[in-house]
Design a protein around this nucleic acid. Sequence first.
DNA 1: TGTAATGTTTACCAATCGGTCAAATTATCT
DNA 2: AGATAATTTGACCGATTGGTAAACATTACA
Lengths: 214, 214
Amino acid sequence: MAIPRAARTQRRTRIQEEKEEIILEAALDVFSVSGFRGSTIDQIAEVAGMSKPNLLYYFRTKEAMHRALIDRVLFTWLEPLRAFDANGNPESEIRSYIRRKLEMARDFPRESRLFANEMLQGAPHVEDELRGPLKSLVDEKAEVIRAWAKAGKIAKCDPYHLIFSIWSTTQHYADFDVQVRAVLGQEHSGEGRFEDAARYLEKLFVDGLGIRQP
Amino acid sequence: MAIPRAARTQRRTRIQEEKEEIILEAALDVFSVSGFRGSTIDQIAEVAGMSKPNLLYYFRTKEAMHRALIDRVLFTWLEPLRAFDANGNPESEIRSYIRRKLEMARDFPRESRLFANEMLQGAPHVEDELRGPLKSLVDEKAEVIRAWAKAGKIAKCDPYHLIFSIWSTTQHYADFDVQVRAVLGQEHSGEGRFEDAARYLEKLFVDGLGIRQP
DNA sequence: TGTAATGTTTACCAATCGGTCAAATTATCT
DNA sequence: AGATAATTTGACCGATTGGTAAACATTACA
């Protein structure tokens, strides 16, 4: 008789690793568009190319699938902020943070939308992570920014709202992609819009924060 | 025999106006959190305090309810952009546009989330409105901004991405409200965060766009 | 006040939902 | 090869889904 994965103590099989990967990939497709409530196991099964009971062999509930997905995404999603370096100089740090976030919006839009969906629904599955690890990380980086302002390297500003504004402006190109394309029109809907956005946003923040160029 | 509303030609009854109002209010509650697919007529009926068939007497399908809601929201949601005046001076126009958008995020967060939900799902119900009326309005305002830049009143910048950045930074406080609260912590989660955001964003954009203060 | 139109509800439908079960199939290891 | 464990599937379950039919109640108006 088959023992459900979660109850097993042994190491994971090759098949397990492969199938779980396929499932999470499919789940990302579905959850990122329709949110948790709006998605169905059948949809995910179809995208994954396997039967519904087979999915449920690897993840015992829809929630477990969503949970595993969120955990994975949340970690990589914070990578750019973690890379934000206190020892670098403000201008290059902010420029590269914006670039990295924009690259993620371009290369991992589904991850961004999954997260956005969760936020819109009031973060029922990740509120703890927000108040815990996320807040800690942001607090730490906010302190760096505050120190820069104190040293006169950048203009005085609320570091939290600064971070929010970088998050929102960059993620916008993933979450509101349809709108961006529709407004820009077909002619400007190529991937070039990310370069345009990077140019505009870097200038906005560098000048907006009063960062003196050497 | 009762004739479904949509097929009727006569004027709307007092009861019709009242009940449709109640239904759309309840629908906004539900749709804005769970999106179209994730919401159920039963949920809306419960919030509205009436029976499911009674809802379906006023709106023949779930889609019709969503449609009516989107139409209404889309109009009022674009009000601040419509108010954006070519004859005003750049600084005060941009300042007040930011303020108005922030006020909407504060006072009508459900409307913002309804719209965000629709975007995340790829705008299956409103893509035409995006490509039509929305694009036209943005095109018109982008021309105004371009003229300001040409006249040297503001720095040269891509007017479309400028509009995107104002949209995203302000709507963020409605759509990602949970995250904002979690990161700011209880002490800064009062309504004061909207004032802080306004102060920060106005400075960011005024300085970032190189607008000379007289 | 009567009556026709409007509004509301109960009971119900077929389809889909998340999830279970046992049987069948495949992989692994000796 | 044979035994054992891991994987996959079809059939199925009760609950929920969007929506309907028709009886019933209320309102508006002559």
